[in-house]
Amino acid sequence: MDWEAFWLTIRLGGLTVLLLIPAAILTGRWLAATRMRGRAIVEAGLALPLVLPPTVVGFYLMIAFGSGAWFGQMFERLFGQTLVFTFEGLLLASLIVNIPFAVQPIQRAFEAVGPELREAAASCGLSRWRTLWRIELPLAWPGILTGTVLTFAHTLGEFGVVLMVGGSIPGETRTIAIAIYDRVQAFDEAAAGQMAAVLLLVSLATIAASYMLTQRIGRRYG
């Protein structure tokens, strides 16, 4: 059992959730209410990682992160280190591939709140921020929770993108999914089996906990 890889994966999932969910709440709220033209294009762009093969996403990220691309160069100049094959690069990749998993459930939840309630809140004199905080967020909470759980669980299981931009460096970019792959290649099926079982249990527990929480919230507000 590669605990280093396990904790690295948990850390990656936790950081992805913490950084992505606040952004996804703002984006989801905006998409739910906007009547801007071209909204479909924005939504399509955000949904892309869902339909593209991970190798395609990984390929583009690898190119963009590399020292040959302006983005990679800019990052190197700003932070004095490269993005490819580092934990930071992996985190950035993880944020990008998880956008649809975070934004879509949250957007649906805000859409379900409906404009009438927002208008009612506004006519009661609540500011937009207070409306978001006191009225919309509590109602959209199950969607936010779903987005959080999907993002976390998906990060645990992501393989293709991590393989392309990560490079399986122990303690740096070797996530548990990659460690399982490595152990199989090393003819160490016992360790691979153990890690696969741990990943299975953690994923199951995460999703079960979210269902239980959603039910409780549903009862409170329903």
Partner: peptide, 21 residues
């Protein structure tokens, strides 16, 4: 030391791109 095993050609490409080995 931390060992990473893979194909030499892939490591060659990764080191060229700045992998921290």
């Amino acid at each position: 030391v931390r060992l990473a095993f893979g194909s030499s050609g892939n490591f060659f490409r990764q080191i060229g791109q700045g992998a921290p080995f």
